[in-house]
Nucleic acid binder design. Structure first.
Lengths: 113, 113
DNA sequence: TTTACATACATAGCAATGCTATGTATAAAG
DNA sequence: CTTTATACATAGCATTGCTATGTATGTAAA
């Protein structure tokens, strides 16, 4: 399923933060995690993720460190800062507000009266 | 609660279509309906809604007619066309895909293991 | 040892567009 | 006669998402 641009934009930051809330991670792994969590429905490109990661870092939501994988490969590991956790909760609340609203109208369609 | 731009953008069209799926309506009433459905959390401006309505009409999702309210006031009534209904279902499916994905990560945070 | 593929990160730059700001008009209320 | 709520419309630009592109290396296969 091809997802609308808008929807992808609205969910990118919440998803990244939520994944990091589960523990430190890095770009490539986050992309795979998203595919996994979505059952293959969401396919992110690295080109769209890295700018988001940089933005999150600049805005104090996450911190980053260079690390080395078991195989010697360089990686940039990201983890949540307290501000990021707060931001995540805020975004979650916003998402749920909208979701609840949508559910209310949908219910009118699928049920009687 | 102030909602993020992205999230507003992602939910506007689905919400409008869903409201129209419930029956013919017009700009001003749609704005009030959104406020009502969201329990006052979502406040749309007319300036952001009308362009969306025009876009939906141009793209064959809705049809519009000029009508007159009981009080003699001119109104532009919109109603769903079959293509709009299909589009609504498509957007709903997309929304649910993302929502399900988010719920899965959130669950990891709020529950154990 | 060369090719191919997966892994891994980075960013310039512009196409696309959301929506603010602004304008018009009228019914009802005070 | 003034204000408020109702009702619709759109120019135009500030904002920004993300494609396209570039770099680099580990591993497997050919």
């Amino acid at each position: 399923m091809k997802l609308a641009k808008d929807l992808v934009a609205a969910s990118t930051v919440p998803l990244v933060l939520a994944i990091l809330a589960d523990g430190e991670s890095y770009g490539y792994a986050i992309i795979q995690r998203v595919r996994e969590l979505s059952g293959g429905e969401m396919e992110w490109t690295d080109g769209m993720l890295y700018p988001v990661l940089h933005w999150l870092e600049e805005n104090g939501h996450v911190k980053a460190r260079w690390g080395t994988a078991e195989n010697g490969r360089k990686r940039r590991y990201y983890s949540l800062k307290p501000g990021g956790r707060r931001h995540l909760e805020e975004l979650r609340a916003q998402w749920l507000t909208v979701h609840t609203t949508l559910r209310r109208v949908w219910r009118l369609q699928h049920e009687g009266t």
